[in-house]
Write a protein that binds this DNA or RNA. Sequence first.
DNA 1: CGAGATGTTCGGCT
DNA 2: AAGCCGAACATCTC
Length: 264
Amino acid sequence: MPELAEVEFFRKQWDAGLGQKVERVELHAAKRIFRGTDTKALKSGLKGPRLLGSRAHGKRMLFRFSSAGWLGIHLGMSGRLRVERPGYVPSRHDHLVLFQRKQILVLSDPRLFGRVHFHRGKSTPWWWNDAAPAIASKEFTAERVASFMRRRSRLAVKSALLDQQMFPGVGNWMADEILWRARIDPRRLCASLKPKEIRTLWRSAQLVCEVAVGSIGASGGDPPAKWLFHQRWKSKGNCPRDGELLEKAAIGGRTTRWCAACQH
DNA sequence: CGAGATGTTCGGCT
DNA sequence: AAGCCGAACATCTC
């Protein structure tokens, strides 16, 4: 599930534990999500400290703990964060569980494509600091997008939108949503985009992110009814704009939906 | 039972 | 040689 807006939603789930101590940590150390991570340090570093705050950037989250502990989480394809009541017994896919007195913070991830990092130190860790400018930020300019498109000239624009170094937080459904809104055919090569189209794409990216975070990110609800989002999962979805049957194809290995009638 | 799923990474090819 | 493609990862659901 997790793209920008869903990540924001999941991050807030753990707000329930803000300011409170972690009394016990349970984790499945051998699981893939902990690859490259010192799970012993994670376990001992989080037991005792309080959860002080969190941030999200693109698809990454960073949770800050007292005693200089930093927990980084990427939800991959099927990761989720949630809160359980005291007494909850973790199940098979609950790979990281932080027990607090009033509630239990749970990270579950059946497919294990997610990733967990742990770091101790005064400042934010290296794996957090290399993030590209957020789409919602002033630094995300049309000019940046234009030069990126020039560099990726022979790449399909759909694939370009999935590049986290340029569009942090954009995933498969958001990329399709952005292209649909900008009326651009996802198969077009980046080099073929005219300056005006790049500008439209840039504005669509900003709008889709803003509205998605305001709906899904804020409450876990749905984006506006007229969005492609509601049609793209159906086998026979229709374009919300003109009612035409949507196209479906794999572009860059990812299922892509678009309207041949209004995206050129 | 096979196919596909909202992500990233790696190895190989051009 | 940078950049692109497809496969692999692990599990569940349709």
